[in-house]
Design a protein around this nucleic acid. Sequence first.
DNA 1: TTGTACGCGTTATCAC
DNA 2: GTGATAACGCGTACAA
Lengths: 331, 331
Amino acid sequence: MASLQEVAARAKVSIATVSRVLNKSEKVVPATRAAVEKALRDLDYRPSRVARRLRMNSGRANLVGLIIPDIQNPFFAEIARGVEDAAYANQYALLLCNSDENLDKERFYLDVMRAESVDGVVLPPFDDRDDAVMDIAQSGMPIVCVDRSLVRVKTDVVEVDNHQGAFDAVSHLIARGHEHIGLIEGRTTVSTNRERRRGYADALAAAGISPRKELIRAGDFKQESGRVLTNELLDLRKPPTALFVVNNLMTVGALAALHQRKLRIPQDMAVVGFDDLPWAEALDPPLTVVRQPAHEVGRQAMELLLKRIMEPGRPPLTVRLQPELVIRRST
Amino acid sequence: MASLQEVAARAKVSIATVSRVLNKSEKVVPATRAAVEKALRDLDYRPSRVARRLRMNSGRANLVGLIIPDIQNPFFAEIARGVEDAAYANQYALLLCNSDENLDKERFYLDVMRAESVDGVVLPPFDDRDDAVMDIAQSGMPIVCVDRSLVRVKTDVVEVDNHQGAFDAVSHLIARGHEHIGLIEGRTTVSTNRERRRGYADALAAAGISPRKELIRAGDFKQESGRVLTNELLDLRKPPTALFVVNNLMTVGALAALHQRKLRIPQDMAVVGFDDLPWAEALDPPLTVVRQPAHEVGRQAMELLLKRIMEPGRPPLTVRLQPELVIRRST
DNA sequence: TTGTACGCGTTATCAC
DNA sequence: GTGATAACGCGTACAA
């Protein structure tokens, strides 16, 4: 809680001198430097990040925001760790916000980012044309989109090849002999969801399988909707023999529905999920998934953000990472 | 990015007047109020939380810190959500830090908390006598301990009855006929760990079972150590017939070891874990666990913190929540 | 080499 | 009712 003033008084110098020894570079005579350093130690001085931020209107807050739908979703938790690891390595701290896919919460938190003068924000936009995010991006705040992207404004983006991931997953099911493959998707306004559906459709087309529209069901990315939609598919007159579920939580919900009906996996119903889980191996049965490099997504997003903070003018970059099909015993 | 100055200029009043209409309470003549409000809207004014924080040296930052070992641990993620939900409800934002049970990281982040002038911090201390946390607590920064507590300094605490939880879990195993029950514990300097071990010992004693010391193994709360220690127990000349594992991640590791050896659960080895998981139902087999009300822990911690911020002098409170044994099919 | 003084955007205390 | 103005803690141009 000691201020520059107090340190200066104790060392019998001016605050400018103290500031100089703190910011290394400048020339100070060894004797005074020693005196100042002693005072610094005696008073256990720590600079106020708040005052610093007020003084210098950008770039040195050493604070960034991360706005994600839900930290309890292991996929976003892994992204968050990636961001945090890269942030910590650069002495940055993280303002974490859960938007719950709720535009009002997202808007509130974006306001907080401005009000806190953070150096930048990492987030998956709510959807393609997320007004609040577009506004703040255009206001000059450095933004890096992860997972999802924006359609009208170009920002730095770190994304995963969702089309490829879905294509591989569905092709794998087809190779296992399935022709009637259910798709459980999430909100259709989200870019990643659309790409995964395209991957599904393209894989069917590539195998010459004609799609059945009633096998496609849209939910909201949450566990419960996976359960409900799986039940809908099971109640069809001609149910699918395999399921491709576009995210982790809905896959867990699908598993619950299948277990409840005592169906055997993969004999009665094969399942591929999107997003790996640390305990996918311990599930019943061990789950075949499309693994996204989520930690790497977060890490690279933070790196991109740091670069943009250093060099605000540079053209936006898009990093595209490859997912990987991890075959376990649910297919 | 508009400041009070600019708003005042546009409305042709002084900044004091603008400040007055912003902070409601005071009297402003309707005409000028209207003019100010128009200027406010035109310029899309948002107050700077940074400037506010610099001016008022405590209590109104609307920012709190949360320092946890690892956000990827579902238990801490749930606590984080509890904290965040209560924070959001009070217009507070959250500075999230992962300490990785690493004292240097913890110290760095505690420094950040001071430097950012946060209103308070929620954290599970590294251990009983965590110096860095004790220092900052004694400096007057409002601190609420969750999950774990401190031994020499009294702060607000929200904890779970770990002894009871462990006692119930082990008694349940005994009721199922087990006498040789392995304990896989975590770091022994952590208060929760010690309480859970006491619960284990007391349950054995209450049933008149003499403990076997070689059935107790200490790890580090992480998945890998659960796997390794389970293998150690299985390699004993007289292995246990049941396992009590003191946290979620180590339980997943234990499951992996058991599956690898093709042991049947619960026939060959019964398993009870500590901490519930959203997908415990989908595990193989569905896992019997001691469920902690983690969201509630986080929520109440934040409430306690808010109360302390309002009333710094009040005596520290300890809230103790009850865990619940959830019996599924692993026992 | 060192010190003085200003401004960052608020809130709060005075005068008028 | 309203307007100057003094902090808060820091960095930096400028003066000494």
